[in-house]
């Protein structure tokens, strides 16, 4: 089974390179963020006591939660700035 690395293109050929570049960047950022999110869920489920470790004066659970929310905002802004327009 062969998976394409870019979304199946349905639009005009002149914007193909731009679309593929955006899609590659989006996929990299998606994999990066998904890894962080998965790590947080896995620690919560299987290493619960780790969430109690103090980070900046509060349990790591709080710091990690803030990090995931703020991290998503930062990555979204970076993605928007890096994407080329169609």
């Amino acid at each position: 089974m062969h998976f394409d690395h870019q979304p199946v293109n349905e639009s005009a050929p002149q914007s193909l390179a731009s679309q593929q570049g955006n899609a590659r960047l989006g996929m990299r950022l998606f994999i990066f963020y998904t890894s962080l999110y998965s790590l947080f869920v896995a620690i919560s489920a299987f290493s619960f006591s780790s969430l109690a470790i103090p980070l900046f004066g509060v349990p790591a659970a709080v710091t990690a939660g803030f990090g995931l929310i703020l991290g998503a905002i930062v990555l979204a802004v970076l993605y928007a700035r890096a994407c080329t327009s169609e």
Binding site: V62, G65, A72
Partner: peptide
């Protein structure tokens, strides 16, 4: 904190929407 888990999950879902779905879906 349990309610905050929903906040984290709900927002993380937008990463899928932006990075994977938004542009091709629009097209």
């Amino acid at each position: 904190y349990d309610g905050f888990l929903y906040s984290i999950g709900f927002l993380a879902g937008w990463v899928v929407a932006l990075f994977v779905i938004a542009e091709p879906l629009k097209r």
